[in-house]
Design a protein around this nucleic acid. Structure first.
Lengths: 243, 243
DNA sequence: ACTTTTTTAAATGTCTGACAAATGGAAAAC
DNA sequence: GTTTTCCATTTGTCAGACATTTAAAAAAGT
């Protein structure tokens, strides 16, 4: 039961926490410069290497960046959606692979979230979003494509759909769900026949989105979900039989 | 030295990247022990402080943990959903505050995502999930509650709804969207009247979920969304007029 | 032979001091 | 007034040392 009485964390972790809190609370504002490493070391009564370890922790979370030179130092980062994507995707990918989330579970989540974007996207999608989707569909129909390239194009297609909703928060959240599935999708070999089916479904979705038809878009996504799961089930079954 | 790319990153960043790639690629497996700091320093031909900074970067992302002592060292973490929640929430919160995302945008995303959970949750929610929701509704109806406590209970209610979908990937993604909104919600003062309305809407959603009525659940969420946005608009308008 | 205690070695955590490299601004030269 | 040179500041890196923790080996006791 002696699980862990608030075990004294490392000094560098404590300092990182203190600075992180200051950023979150707004005591340190965006683009503001932190005290120099020497000053921080003095303030916290630790050595400079310890301060540096704390700063590296924060840099790893994109909370600060450092700059060398006379007017250099550590600056509070503006956490942009674009920058946060990468972290979000890395974390989501690892979560899926390390926890052995089944393909079905990940797939279910992904399409549930995508369907959540459908109403907004069919309302707000720009011609640009449609053009991107059409272009990706065209690419997916080309014969010489590797499975990896096909999956990458698939991700691009769905990102265009999601971005069409015009809500950066949605795009951010969906980035994790959609892109993190790519490694799982890459485990699948797509036959010419299954690619044909997917391209047809993609076309149906793009058409529905162009017509601003929410119901049709949603149904298209659902059809794509069941088709994707069917293909995956087939691939996994064949693989299991071979082993 | 051959390492003269246009933008030579910090050595510690390079090393962190190399190890991170090894983890993502599976060359380093979960619970596997990394070489000691001295060995790593030797392998990468850098000093131990540099290696340590790299390891701290990875520790900040929960990719590794370190243990002191004879059989200690750095171990590859199993990234659990629970652990990832905290990071996800911190990042989402900062994203919202630093990028001045409007209340409406965040609210729209949140309820769109929640509606995505409705079909699954009405199908799979357990009596336990329902009980949690009822308990939170009961708490929300009590008079002496602070605004913060009311918001916290609101979050707990919605998390139960999301968890009811029985999909950890969904729960993870939603945690960011739902909990990151709490600071925004906390800026709102809830009148007794508006609390009453929200409690009624929550009750309606719980009832619909108990009856496994997808349409009713979805409509309840939509009603709650527009009510929330209406309350927020009122509060912000009053605040703007006063200033 | 088995259990308990002690020792020991390995590893991380931290500190000190130093030098290298980058960089912006001030001082000097033109 | 413009350009060049110099310099102080700050981060990046290194080397070595000591402290602390911890598990396993060694020793002692039963």
């Amino acid at each position: 039961m002696e699980n862990a009485p608030p075990r004294p964390a490392d000094l560098s972790a404590q300092i990182a926490s203190a600075i992180r809190d200051a950023i979150v609370d707004g005591r340190l504002r965006v683009e503001e410069r932190l005290p120099s490493e020497a000053e921080l070391a003095d303030q916290f009564s630790v050595s400079r290497p310890t301060v540096r370890e704390a700063l590296k922790r924060l840099a790893a979370q994109s909370l600060i960046r450092t700059q060398r030179g006379a007017a250099g130092g550590a600056f509070v980062n503006r956490l942009s959606f674009e920058n946060a994507y990468a972290q979000q995707i890395t974390t989501s990918t690892l979560l899926l692979s390390m926890n052995a989330v089944s393909f079905d579970t990940a797939c279910e989540a992904r399409f549930a979230l995508e369907r959540a974007c459908a109403p907004l996207s069919s309302q707000r999608r720009s011609p640009d979003h449609l053009a991107t989707m059409r272009a990706e569909i065209h690419r997916q129909a080309q014969p010489g494509l590797t499975d990896e390239a096909f999956c990458a194009s698939d991700v691009a297609f769905h990102r265009a759909l999601v971005d069409g909703a015009g809500n950066p928060v949605l795009s951010y959240q969906l980035a994790g769900a959609v892109e993190a599935m790519q490694p799982l999708m890459n485990m699948i070999t797509f036959t010419a026949r299954s690619r044909e089916t997917i391209v047809a479904l993609h076309t149906g979705i793009a058409d529905a989105l162009e017509a601003r038809d929410v119901v049709e878009t949603t149904q298209g996504l659902s059809a794509l979900e069941s088709e994707t799961r069917k293909i995956a089930a087939g691939v996994f079954a064949a693989r299991a039989a071979r082993d």
